[in-house]
Simulated scan of single mutants.
Amino acid sequence: MAYLDEDILSDVSDKIITTSIKILGLEGNTSSHYLLEHYSHSAQDFIFDFCKLNEIPPSLYTVITEMIVFQYKQKGVENVASEGKGSVSESYLTEYPPNIMNRLKSHRKIVIL
């Protein structure tokens, strides 16, 4: 498993994180950069494991951005399926939404044992 190539990593990873920061409206919030970097590595790990890839193709860079944004928006409710307070009940997604999973499935390799 190899993260984005070290030479390319700084450029691409920075662009992915910068795009995520802009989408989330976190410009000027430097502490969020480290969290989004963590989410980026988490997304890459998920892609490697789910798709059985050795490297991440450029066509999945936008998917990484979507995964980072999704993870950030789930911050604070990780591993919570639903929550009720009085007569109000909220449900949360516990896995990546279908639009992300469908794009990952199109890059998935079948492993025959």
Results as ranks from 00 to 15, higher is better:
32 S>D: 14
60 L>R: 00
58 P>M: 08
17 I>S: 03
24 L>A: 08
21 I>H: 04
21 I>Q: 05
59 S>I: 08
56 I>V: 05
34 Y>Q: 14
33 H>E: 15
59 S>A: 12
45 D>F: 00
39 Y>K: 06
23 I>D: 09
38 H>A: 09
30 T>M: 07
55 E>K: 09
24 L>G: 08
46 F>G: 00
38 H>V: 11
48 F>Y: 12
38 H>D: 14
32 S>E: 13
25 G>E: 05
42 S>A: 09
56 I>D: 00
58 P>V: 09
34 Y>G: 15
26 L>Y: 03
60 L>Q: 03
27 E>R: 11
57 P>C: 00
27 E>G: 11
49 D>I: 04
59 S>K: 10
32 S>A: 14
21 I>W: 01
27 E>D: 15
22 K>G: 10
54 N>W: 10
51 C>Y: 01
16 I>H: 05
55 E>G: 10
25 G>W: 04
35 L>H: 13
58 P>C: 08
23 I>A: 08
48 F>R: 10
22 K>E: 15
56 I>E: 02
40 S>C: 11
16 I>S: 09
35 L>R: 13
46 F>N: 02
48 F>Q: 08
26 L>W: 00
56 I>R: 01
30 T>K: 06
49 D>W: 00
50 F>M: 02
36 L>T: 06
56 I>K: 03
40 S>I: 07
48 F>T: 08
38 H>K: 14
40 S>W: 01
59 S>E: 15
54 N>M: 10
24 L>M: 01
24 L>R: 04
50 F>W: 07
43 A>W: 02
23 I>E: 09
54 N>R: 11
27 E>A: 13
58 P>F: 10
57 P>M: 02
55 E>A: 09
17 I>A: 07
25 G>P: 05
48 F>P: 00
60 L>A: 01
60 L>Y: 00
18 T>R: 12
52 K>F: 09
40 S>V: 07
32 S>G: 11
38 H>Q: 15
31 S>W: 06
57 P>E: 00
22 K>Q: 13
56 I>T: 02
45 D>H: 05
30 T>E: 14
26 L>E: 04
61 Y>Q: 02
22 K>I: 12
58 P>S: 13
56 I>L: 04
24 L>V: 07
57 P>R: 02
50 F>H: 05
36 L>W: 06
24 L>W: 02
31 S>G: 13
44 Q>C: 10
16 I>M: 12
50 F>Q: 02
23 I>G: 07
19 T>C: 09
31 S>L: 12
26 L>C: 03
56 I>M: 01
34 Y>D: 15
19 T>V: 08
25 G>N: 07
22 K>R: 08
42 S>H: 11
33 H>C: 12
43 A>Y: 03
32 S>I: 10
57 P>A: 03
18 T>A: 15
24 L>H: 04
16 I>N: 04
22 K>D: 15
48 F>M: 08
36 L>S: 04
54 N>D: 15
57 P>Q: 02
36 L>E: 02
59 S>D: 14
27 E>M: 09
52 K>D: 15
32 S>K: 11
42 S>C: 09
41 H>L: 07
21 I>G: 01
59 S>T: 12
46 F>W: 00
29 N>I: 14
20 S>A: 09
48 F>S: 07
61 Y>K: 01
47 I>E: 03
